[in-house]
Each structure stands twice: as structure tokens, then as C-alpha cells.
Design a protein around this nucleic acid. Sequence first.
DNA 1: TTGTATGCGTTATCAA
DNA 2: TTGATAACGCATACAA
Lengths: 356, 356
Amino acid sequence: MTTLTATPSHTIADIKAIILREARRVTSYDVASLAGVSQSAVSRCFKPGASVSKATYARVMQAAQDLDYTPNAAARSLITRRSNLVAVIVPSAISQHYSDVLAELSRQFSLRGMHIILFNLQSESEIDLTLAEVWLHQVDGAVVAARLTAEQVAEFERRRVPIVLFNRSVAGCDVNSVVCDQEEAARAMVTRLAAAGHKRFAMIDGPAQSPIAQQRKRGMAGRLAELGLAAPMAVAGGLDYNGGARGLREILDRFGGIPDVVVCGNDLTAIGCLDTARHDFRIDVPGHMSVTGFDGIAASGWISYNLTTMSQPLLSMAQTAAEMLFGLVAGTGGARQQRSYSATFVDGATARLGPA
Amino acid sequence: MTTLTATPSHTIADIKAIILREARRVTSYDVASLAGVSQSAVSRCFKPGASVSKATYARVMQAAQDLDYTPNAAARSLITRRSNLVAVIVPSAISQHYSDVLAELSRQFSLRGMHIILFNLQSESEIDLTLAEVWLHQVDGAVVAARLTAEQVAEFERRRVPIVLFNRSVAGCDVNSVVCDQEEAARAMVTRLAAAGHKRFAMIDGPAQSPIAQQRKRGMAGRLAELGLAAPMAVAGGLDYNGGARGLREILDRFGGIPDVVVCGNDLTAIGCLDTARHDFRIDVPGHMSVTGFDGIAASGWISYNLTTMSQPLLSMAQTAAEMLFGLVAGTGGARQQRSYSATFVDGATARLGPA
DNA sequence: TTGTATGCGTTATCAA
DNA sequence: TTGATAACGCATACAA
């Protein structure tokens, strides 16, 4: 490699030619050479709050601009032991649902000088391969919206990578998380429905592996039992639009008549159920049957649906998750915490409701 | 730092204690020490296709597992000059729309051992700040779904960062891109609508800065002129659900009566327009007025809408973009290329159509 | 096949 | 305030 002295013996063109010839990057040495200062001086100029004279700073910055110099994050992170990178791990299946969350996380982290490496899980089974990639990239922390085993959580701990679970928890594991209380939401929904006189409950459930679906189901069953009502007829949906359509057909088949209400695992399912009820079966909703969702997605508010649902404060949750993780990374995190948000009732037009 | 010799003089517990005490990471030297080999041997074990004996490999891997060792991507990229990181730059405003694209890009890149750093633009004006972060992280390439100036494209070139534009182009700039031919799509739509006898066209347009909206508008206007029909009455929408609602109101106001068809800037707008037309104005769609969209989002297929629209092959486009970028990064890219896809007609139930 | 030595581009320490 | 020098953790050329 051509030695670049600290005296300004090279012109911009010289240096650019050398870099081109050697097929390498512009380094702080190049900038130092052009500015006639030492490499350390250049480094200091790119560190906020470092001690540099006005004159040196100006010359260095001019040289940096002339050469299109940018510090190399890899080299920097090698010595600072911070990558300023955060892993966000989301199952592909729900990435649609979380696009706003992702955008908000990205915003929050970039406000703090950090960026997101995205890990999209095809299936939850490939999570171990994904974690290997996470370790590789030396992320400063991770936001995980996927199911984790206690062993996997322990590995985060061993490797000293702070983690915040998003809308998940791990059984028997005290881990930082931001969640929406699904069980409470389901109970609230049942309460309002029962207050309006609904007795025969049906439910289109998510897959058995979905923890959120399970929590909602548990809340519903629990509250029904408290109220002395029969357990709901539950059919498996799939948490998408078609799942709602299929689910309703199965319910009508098995129920022999229509139930008072179909509580759906999420809004997408509810919308599928609603469309099928109204258009294929000509059922009057909510006149003859109520339909409710969970989540509060944008489409639930569209005029055609105006869905009665429980809305999760996803944006606030994302903001909190980012804050929490940043605190942990910066070392000001303090103790483990579980932040739980309540869903808010959206009093739409697809269910008859009683008082809270 | 404690010197770790190449002889297996330390036990697992020893090494872990040292690492803990020095608050540093597990390095290939630690693994080498435990396995009783040199550091370079460890390095080779983690390089696919390197020359290592069966026995050495086994011992190294055992030691690596015992210590929870993972290579450090930062150190690696410093020497290989590849970060295996790809920047994906998307305006927040459309991140919803592109969540599937993002998932597919993530899948495609991780298949090739690369990962995505996500850059979400709050406003397109902050792109220069964002690019600075992109340079910092030494990404191997970028997929950009935002508007870029020729100067910005030139900077990618100067810095030798390959780039693929997604559904964008830069005026007077020969840059790799994967697009859907919006103008052709708009022309096809007008042709089918005109063939059914529609004469009075209205359109709910996207913002003037949106290149996609402009292309669609141009195609529509061009084809109408060819057919000897009057130019459409255009109102500005905003490309969201409410934009469709507001847009229709404005059209009805200004039109004095209802037009034959409202061509909407995208599906979301069309759905808003449709809901407003049917529920607020009791207009028979498509009996008295046709409504069409663009994009082919999931909701356009829901029973309540069954929207007549032009569907973009976003997944194929994402796949192509990833392939193209990977080719450029791997050096097998060849010449600049613009891949253009055609939208496919979705013959829904919201417009009267003639033959193609 | 294996080990030694070197450099990737930065930050951090310390003396001047 | 500045410059020399030593890490950071790895991959690679070369010698053995």
C-alpha cells in the first residue's frame, strides 16, 4: 500500500488515483494526508464532543468531503464494541400486520443513531438458524415478535444481548417485554356481548401454536364460565381472511343454526367471516348475529365493515419497546420489566353490545 | 489482555472466567486455545470449503460450541470488504404497501447469506441524512423504493455501492431497476373501459410528487386522447382510503352528476371511493358508475369489494430485484438493466368492461 | 494440512 | 489540542 504521509504532499486527484488503483476504500489516513494532520485528528473530528480546534476541524471536514470519506462502521464497532445495529425478528406470516410497528421501531431507533437488521422467519422452526445470523452481526440488542424457548432466551443472556419481546412471553422466564393484555381484552369483549344478551358464543380461533390466540381464547372461556354461560364452540381459523370464511361455514355446519355471536381471532378473520355471513349466507349482522374482531387494523374502520373490535395500541407499544431496548443497550435499563398495555374497545357496528 | 497460548492449557471454565473478567467477547483465539490449534485453523473451520482435516475441524467445532463462539461479522467484513448487508430504503408512507415486498427481499437475501438493514424515510427530504447512514454501514448494495436525484445515484456509483431501484426511475439516468409498467397498465384499463362505452372519465390522482401516480395519469390521458375521448377530470387524492372518499365527493361536486367511471390512483383509494359511493351516495357500482384501482392488494379481492384493478406482480419484482442486486454484488452482474413487468388485469365486479 | 505474521480501518490511551 | 502507538477480531499469504 502506498504510504500517505501526514504532510499535505498529495492532491485530491493523487489520492483518488491511488485509491482507485489499489481498489480500496477511502480511509481516515487519506483524509489526514490531504488535510495535513494525523489520522487521530481525523478520527476525533468524527466523534461528537471530542477535543479539536476549530481550524483543524474545518480542514479535516473539507478534506473528508473532497474525498467522499465516511467512517467505517465495521472498524468502529470492532473497537467500541457497539454495532449500533438492532435485530428485529418477526415471523413472515405476521409481517403484514406489523408493518406499522416495523416503521415505528425504525423511526425510534434511527432517532437514537441505531438501525434495524430485519430477520423474517419463514417458519418458527428456523429460528435457531436465524439466531446464528444474529450473533454473527453482533447486534446491540433485539426486538423479538416470535416465539422463543427459555433456552433461546438464556442464550441471549449468555451472549449479553439485551432483548425485548413484543407481544410475546416465555413461560417461566423473566424477560423484558411489551405486550397487550389479550386475556383482559377477550374478557372485556365477552362482558359487553353478554350484557347485550348473547348466550350462544362461537369462536374462530387461531392456530394452537399462536400464543396470542391462546390468550384470547383463555380470556374468553374464563369470562364465559364466570358468567355461567356455556363454553364457546371453537373452530380453527388461521387468522387470515379465508380462515374467517371457512370458519363461519364450519360453525354453521356444526352449530345447526346460527350462534348469537362469532368472536374472531383477529380482524382479518372477522372481516372474512363478516363478508361470508352477509354475502353468502345473507345473515343480518348484527341483527341476527354479532361478529367481533381483535387488533384494530385499518380495514376494520372501513365503512363496509365498521367492525366491533379491541384495538391494540401497536404504535405506543413499538415506541415503548424501542425505548426499553435502548435503555438496556445504554446501560440505563435497570431491572427487568414487563410493560402491559390494555386494548381499547372499538364500538363498531357489527355487534350488539351492553354496558361495560 | 491475558495471553492464551496455542496449547490446550486452559479449561472451558478458565477461559470463560478470563472473558468475563476482561468483559470482552469470545474470539477465535479463545477457541484456538481450547482446541489446541492456531487461530488461523479456527478461522478456516468457519470458512466453507477451506482446507482443514476432519480431526481439527471436529475439535475446533466442539470448542466453539463449548464457548458459544460466533465469528464477528465486523472484523470479518473489515478484511473481506464485504458486510453481507443490504440497505433497503423505503418511504414510511408506503411501507404498509410494501410489507410483502420487504418480506420477500428478506427471504431472497437471507438465502444468499445476506441481511437487510432497513431505512424508513419519514419524508423524502431526509434522504441525504439517510444516505450518510448507508455509507457508514458499508452495505454491499441497496434496494431503493424512494425517489432519488441523479446526483444521489451518482454518489452510489462513486462509492461503488450497487443499487437497484424498485418501481422507480431517475430522469436521464441509466440505473438498474425493476419496475411495473404503470403507463401501459393505465392504458390497458382505459381501453377496456372505453370498449364498454364509458365516455366521461374521472380520476382520483395521487400526489404530484409520486412518480407512479404520474405515470398512471400519463398513460390514462394518452390513451383517452388516442380514443378521441375527453381528458379526465382529475382530483388529488392522497392514495389512502380517506383520499378516495374525499376524492369522490370533490368529483361529484365539480362534475355536476356522476361520471361514467372513477379511475383511482391505487386500490386503497378505490376502496375508499367505492365505500363512499355505495354507502354515502347510494350509487350503484358498477351499474351507474364504474370504479377501478391499481395494485392488486389483498383487500381488493375481498367479497365486499371484488375490485376491478391492475395487479402488480410485486413478489416477482422483489425476487428479481434481489437476484439483480446479488448479481451486481457478486460481480456477475453485467450491464445495466431495466426489468419491466406488466400488470395483470383483474376482472372484478366494480366496472363494466369491454373486450381487451 | 497447519502455523506465523500481517493488515483491514477505526477508537483509545498516553505523552508531548 | 495533537500525534504516535496499541488494540479490536478476523482472514489470508506464505512458509513449513
